[in-house]
């Protein structure tokens, strides 16, 4: 027993000393959302460019921003959501790496090039994009699921069986859509109506939490606000789940790979940005987290079930996803107060 431990220990030491010179070529520090990065992708990049990658995770754009703003994080790569790219460019936190001049840029789907958060793609490239709507167990509720009514005035069988995202914008935006009001709304009369709607609906909600897959597959709830990739992963374990495309509309979003202005490994970071625009690499990203990417030709390398999944391939009659821009500070302040009152 003792000898085994010793041998193992020596083997470990040996492998370290042997491995160290090989890996010492370069480093890359990635700061991405948790449970979102394909390990296969990282291994491939490490092997191809002889770079040692470290990965760290965050759970919201705001957490990432707070940390990055303090400076000196040592991170090279971040993966902010659309509106957060816009904010970080304004704040001078991102390096202008000119992906539009890189070798693999021609692979990017043209519809993701001139986006409002990074016109012409001077700072960022697509990581994955998806939608935020909700998932319902069709065995529990067999009516029409494509309406936000299920969240705000649920039928008896869904009352007390609902999880909402613990996210101010996702909850308030859904309320605004249900009442037919504009997003980023500063109109206090309309916001008051939304507040009343949310407070009334809250009694039917069981939880407000980000861990949607687990909530659905454990049978804690039968309906959950959800992202499409998470919806697909949940359905693989609970086949009666269905992802809704509500007629009132739903959120679209894109997470983008960008490089920090103070990145210590700038060259490796640029290599990585170019690397993920190759279709076979973009497909690795999607195969892991189950969202679409913005790279043409990546479908060829994707798992077969992704190409037909109703969560990824939107039905023809579904509304266009609504990419919500960052709201002015006064509106954010109003939202904050509604949110605190809702959860107070």
């Amino acid at each position: 027993m003792k000898r085994t431990t010793l041998t193992l220990g020596m083997a470990a030491v040996a492998s370290f000393t042997l491995a160290a010179p090989v890996l010492a070529e370069g480093k890359l520090n990635i700061y991405n959302w948790g449970n979102y990065t394909s390990p296969e992708l990282i291994e491939k990049f490490e092997a191809e460019y002889d770079v040692e990658v470290t990965l760290d995770g965050y759970d919201s754009n705001e957490t990432m921003l707070a940390k990055v703003k303090e400076g000196g994080t040592g991170y090279d790569i971040v993966v902010p959501g659309d509106y957060m790219i816009k904010i970080m460019i304004q704040e001078g936190l991102l390096a202008e790496i000119k992906p539009n001049e890189m070798e693999n840029f021609s692979n990017m789907d043209p519809k993701w090039v001139d986006v409002w958060w990074d016109e012409g793609r001077n700072y960022s490239v697509p990581w994955q994009w998806g939608t935020t709507s909700f998932t319902v167990d069709t065995e529990v509720y067999d009516g029409d699921i494509n309406t936000l009514k299920l969240l705000f005035e649920p039928p008896a069988e869904l009352q007390g069986r609902i999880n909402m995202l613990n996210d101010m914008n996702d909850v308030i935006n859904a309320g605004l859509r249900y009442l037919g009001y504009e997003r980023c709304n500063g109109n206090v009369e309309e916001l008051k109506e939304v507040t009343d709607l949310l407070l009334e609906a809250k009694q039917h909600w069981r939880t407000m939490d980000y861990s949607t897959i687990e909530k659905l597959t454990s049978g804690d709830v039968d309906l959950s606000q959800n992202w499409n990739g998470a919806a697909m992963r949940a359905r693989e374990q609970r086949p009666t789940l269905q992802y809704a495309y509500p007629v009132e509309g739903f959120t679209g979003w894109m997470d983008n790979v960008a490089v920090l202005a103070d990145a210590p490994n700038m060259d490796n970071a640029k290599l990585f940005v170019n690397f993920i625009m190759a279709p076979e690499n973009a497909a690795l990203i999607s195969n892991f987290a189950r969202y679409a990417n913005g790279i043409k030709g990546s479908e060829e390398f994707m798992d077969a079930e992704m190409l037909t999944a109703p969560e990824i391939v939107m039905p023809a009659d579904a509304p266009t996803p609504d990419f919500v821009k960052p709201c002015p500070q006064e509106t954010v302040d109003l939202y904050n107060r509604i949110w605190t009152r809702l959860k107070g």
Binding site: A66, N336, W339, T340, G344
Partner: peptide, 20 residues
């Protein structure tokens, strides 16, 4: 279930999405 804030969660919220 995250439906009701407690002090700890309220404070954490201010440094996150509430940005205050």
């Amino acid at each position: 279930g995250g439906k009701k804030l407690m002090i700890g969660n309220l404070i954490a919220l201010q440094f996150g999405s509430s940005r205050n």
